[in-house]
């Protein structure tokens, strides 16, 4: 076998190894989204607690955090405390809005969940899964941050806890509220 062939073989094997390595150790939650930088779909749905229609349109010009959740979702319970803490941190800023989107759930279960775990911000129901599909949701919990111009700037699949809480609060929401560039690296 000539040196050229040997080198080609080694390069192919290295390439395959790199692919396997990425598959084995890459974050399965990280599915690149095509929605970053695109206009956030202007969805609407009834409020889980009051039944009044909530529309995203009414929050145009504000930084909006959309959090998809369900009462049957274990990871949603894990992140619930952090999500409430996040709202507590920014709720006094008039340019910040936080909305929950209740996904694939039964109304009594969702209401019971909010009663049990508490809430400080409104939640809309995704009645036919259309909101989730419009936002390219894979499962719950998923969190989106929409800027003042109505563009999706950040998406995270999984519970917003630990370093993700820090990333979303310090690197995404705080800079957006100050009109500064965001840092999407977690």
């Amino acid at each position: 076998m000539t040196k050229g062939w040997q080198l080609t073989l080694v390069l192919i094997l290295l390439g395959l190894f790199a692919l396997f390595y990425q598959g084995l150790w890459g974050d399965p939650r990280h599915i690149p989204t095509v929605l970053i930088g695109t206009d956030a779909p202007m969805v609407e749905g009834p409020d889980v607690e009051t039944g009044d229609v909530i529309s995203l349109e009414q929050f145009k010009g504000k930084v909006v955090l959309l959090n998809f959740w369900a009462s049957w979702c274990y990871e949603c319970k894990v992140e619930h405390e952090s999500v409430l803490q996040l709202h507590q941190l920014f709720k006094d800023d008039p340019n910040f809005v936080m909305l929950g989107v209740n996904y694939q759930d039964k109304l009594p279960d969702a209401q019971q969940y909010l009663k049990e775990y508490g809430t400080t911000f409104p939640h809309m129901r995704d009645l036919h899964g259309q909101i989730a599909i419009d936002y390219g949701v894979y499962g719950v919990p998923e969190t989106f941050v929409i800027d003042q111009e109505g563009k999706i700037r950040y998406k995270y699949v999984g519970p917003v806890t630990g370093h993700m809480y820090t990333t979303i609060t310090q690197n995404i929401i705080a800079p957006l509220l100050k009109g500064q560039p965001i840092n999407t690296k977690s």
């Binding site: 989204t33 095509v34 929605l35 599909i133």
Partner: peptide, 8 residues
């Protein structure tokens, strides 16, 4: 669907 979820 492509615009929402990408090629996946």
């Amino acid at each position: 669907f492509l615009s929402r979820y990408g090629d996946y």
